[in-house]
Amino acid sequence: MEYILNPWPWYVSGPLITLIMVILILFGKNFGMSSNLRTLCTIGGGDKYADFFKINWKSYSWNLVVALGAILGGFIATQYLSNGAPIDLSVETIKDLNTLGFSNAGKNLLPPEIYSWDAILSLKGMSILIIAGFLVGFGARYAGGCTSGHAISGLSNLQMPSLIAVIGFFIGGLVMTHFIIPLIF
């Protein structure tokens, strides 16, 4: 039980993610979480505004069920399978975050400096979440996939487009982390 309650090392987690991908392939589906956002747009009536949303959402409903399961999984993992151990971040990361004004780095999964209601209920805090979310949704669809669809499934299938997308993910992520986040915080 101790092994389950403690954070799982990468060499356990990585192969288990592969297992998720393989199970979905054997179910005749493909692993990709961002396409749910497109399905949500279609359900919400997006097909009246753009042909891109003229899809039969019922044929993608299995993926919404995976997302629903993921929500439940998040609940189960934090409520019953965790011992509240802080995230074992590197010393340099904690130091860098401290410099930016993030205290207690790694105590929770997410920084209260971004996700607490105190932070959100300010123009700056609300803008950060809205802009970040918008970029994730817009960018994922423009790139034709996100981390699960490109970085895991696409690279596993040796697809060049996925490699280009993952290089893009890293260019964006590096610029944000090294240059923009220090300007924001």
């Binding site: 979480m33 961002s34 749910n36 956002l37 993921a70 997410l110 920084p111 971004i114 950060i128 979440l129 802009i131 970040a132 979310g133 918008f134 970029l135 994730v136 949704g137 817009f138 960018g139 994922a140 669809r141 423009y142 790139a143 034709g144 996100c146 981390t147 699960s148 490109h150 280009i164 997308a165 993952v166 290089i167 893009g168 993910f169 890293f170 260019i171 964006g172 992520g173 590096l174 610029v175 944000m176 982390t177 923009i180 986040i181």
Partner: peptide
């Protein structure tokens, strides 16, 4: 698309899953 996604991923610290 990848670059825009990367901006959002690093800022929100979360991708769609």
């Amino acid at each position: 698309g990848g670059i825009l996604f990367g901006f959002g991923w690093a800022l929100a610290g979360a991708c769609p899953g």
